[in-house]
Design a protein around this nucleic acid. Structure first.
Lengths: 134, 134
DNA sequence: CCATGTGTATTAGTGTAGTAATACACAGGA
DNA sequence: TCCTGTGTATTACTACACTAATACACATGG
């Protein structure tokens, strides 16, 4: 599948390495670059390629497992997990509540930037279209 | 004006004290609890009331000043700054770009939660209405 | 000019997040 | 069984975030 490598890190970016990896996997998932059932490159493989410690990669993978994005298969590695059905994730209302804090942060920042709710919604559409497109 | 005190901190909440204060000021501003020209309680006043170090309060105030939320008036304290005109904050496009990273984060999380862009936009409306209402 | 009010520069102490080195447990194929 | 491949528990080091104690600069009103 992926011809070139999935990861890239900037050690001096301020953002911790394990978090950079974690975010990149998430993005690869939503963008469809990796799909349910695919295996991520092994901890040591990533560690060698990026010249970081295996434990750092492991930390990213473990957190992804905790969040249900990947699943650990003994002796084989980390596999992209099936996306849970909506019902297993709580009711619509519960899921919206879970997203609320982030949305509040968006609203607060939008206020400072003099952006109306309509203008924010334009952004939402744009970003969602990006994701679906790929 | 404010009959009771503006601030409240939970030292063991995990969130640093200075950030709790900072966020509360921001919320007071967008909610209209404090308005342009109002003075915030002095560093020492807050420090006494909340039993924290004055420097901790000062840190929150300084960051708010850096972000243009308040302005330092020598000998008098921190005053809520006039909200900058949209034009001084960059073009519409620039301001939207500034908000983009947060929106992308929302989209990623919404994906995991099986929330459509329409469902996210409902949330946006709800939160914005909250703010305008006050 | 002194007393009292602002906020803050400087310095230091403490906890913890991030990273790394090592050794281990488990799975699968030769 | 042994070899090699998974991921990880444990431990330790280091940098930095957070907080605090102190002393200072500036403004204002008596």
């Amino acid at each position: 599948m992926a011809a070139d490598f999935l990861f890239q890190v900037f050690p001096n970016s301020g953002l911790p390495i394990y978090r950079q990896l974690l975010d990149q996997v998430r993005r690869h998932v939503v963008s469809g670059r990796v799909s349910e059932g695919d295996f991520l490159p092994s901890v040591r493989q990533v560690a060698l390629e990026l010249e970081v410690n295996p434990m750092t990669v492991s930390k990213a993978y473990s957190l992804l497992e905790r969040d249900g994005v990947v699943e650990h298969v003994r002796g084989q590695g980390m596999r992209i997990a099936p996306r849970p059905k909506p019902s297993e994730n709580g009711s619509l209302r519960e899921r919206q509540e879970r997203l609320l804090p982030l949305v509040e942060q968006v609203a607060a920042e939008a206020y400072q930037l003099h952006l109306s709710s309509a203008q924010v919604k334009v952004l939402i559409d744009r970003v969602f279209k990006e994701l679906d497109g790929k």
